[in-house]
Simulated assay, not measured.
Amino acid sequence: MAETCHVPDIGRLPDLGPRVSGLVAQRRADVENAKKKRSGGSLTGAIGEAAKTVGFRAALYNHFAEKGRPGVIADIQGASPFTKVTRARLDVSDLAQDFHDAGAVCVSACQDRRLYRGSLADFGAARAADLPILANDLVVDLYQVIEARYAGADAVLLIAGVLGAALSDFVSRAESVMLDALVEVRSQGELALALDAGANLIAVNARDLETMEVDPSVFEALLPKIPPDRALAVAAGGLASLADVETVAALGAKAVRIGSALMAAPDPYVRLHEILGTEPDDLVED
């Protein structure tokens, strides 16, 4: 398979808005610069020496099967192009360990510095918590899938509305290097596209990537339509409380992805406990 695959005309799906189109163009330019420093072929060759991936989807599936409630994917990011939240101080290793201790099933890390204030080194730092890692990136080129695998990710985020008809190529490429693909959707058309691409891990994102506004009705419209025998349903976007988690669980979510609520908190460890309805051990009175 070719090492690059640019975003095609997404046809029956809505056109990308000006803001997201600008972000896509910016990320493409950054990827082209990265290729000049290290080719896709060189990265692909180095994967053979990389550590084996651990099951990202399997961890979420097993948690739900054992606990009967959604497992948390906790985002670690200094910034995001899709929220207004930034975090001045970001110790990836400490945060990953805090999220592990608070009950997260998986974490995310970001390889892009400009949009997410991340780096390839963040994956090694997050690995210290011994949790499966999602590469949280605006993926526009197959190079990024290989880069994520090389960095130490166990899964990669693919946005159906950005990749359009090329989505199946990206899902296949991820599978070829033993990465799980978390495919994000926001509409009926995008959900159909994800299922046609063979996605078995589908996230419904209630946040509009263009306006950054959250619309919970997106959960209501799409989560019940994800066939449980074909894909594990994940809810993402604007989740900030135990009530939110319980609401999406009732709609069919088997996992949740939480980012801005944690990154905006003074103490993300305590905040995750609050969202899970648990209490930090060090705050429990004898």
Results as ranks from 00 to 15, higher is better:
Q111S: 11
D9N: 15
L182K: 03
R117W: 12
L195D: 01
L95Y: 09
T211A: 04
A121M: 07
P8D: 09
G55S: 14
L201H: 13
V156F: 03
E49R: 13
A236S: 15
A265K: 00
G152L: 03
L179S: 06
A135S: 11
V20L: 14
A165Q: 13
A34G: 06
G71A: 06
A160Q: 03
L90V: 08
R19H: 07
G124I: 02
A65S: 11
T211K: 03
V234L: 01
Y143L: 09
G189N: 12
V204N: 11
E213P: 00
Q26E: 15
A104M: 01
L283F: 12
S241W: 01
P8A: 07
D30Y: 10
S39Q: 10
E3G: 08
D267N: 15
A51C: 03
L239S: 06
T83A: 00
D141F: 03
D180S: 04
F82K: 08
A240M: 10
A50R: 13
L276F: 03
P132E: 08
T211P: 06
V177F: 09
D169A: 10
R186W: 14
L158R: 09
F82G: 01
K67M: 09
L262F: 04
G118C: 03
S80L: 07
V156H: 00
Y116E: 05
A240G: 13
L222R: 03
T83C: 07
Q111C: 13
A126F: 09
P227F: 10
S172V: 09
A231D: 02
V92Y: 03
K225C: 05
D141R: 09
A135L: 00
L195G: 04
E49M: 13
R207H: 06
L167Q: 00
E49Q: 11
L95H: 12
G161C: 03
N205L: 05
L138D: 12
A255Y: 07
T278P: 10
G161L: 09
D208H: 05
A240T: 10
G78F: 02
L242D: 04
P280L: 11
R19M: 11
K84H: 13
V218P: 05
Y269I: 05
R207E: 11
N200V: 06
K52I: 06
L232N: 15
P228Y: 09
A34M: 15
P18V: 09
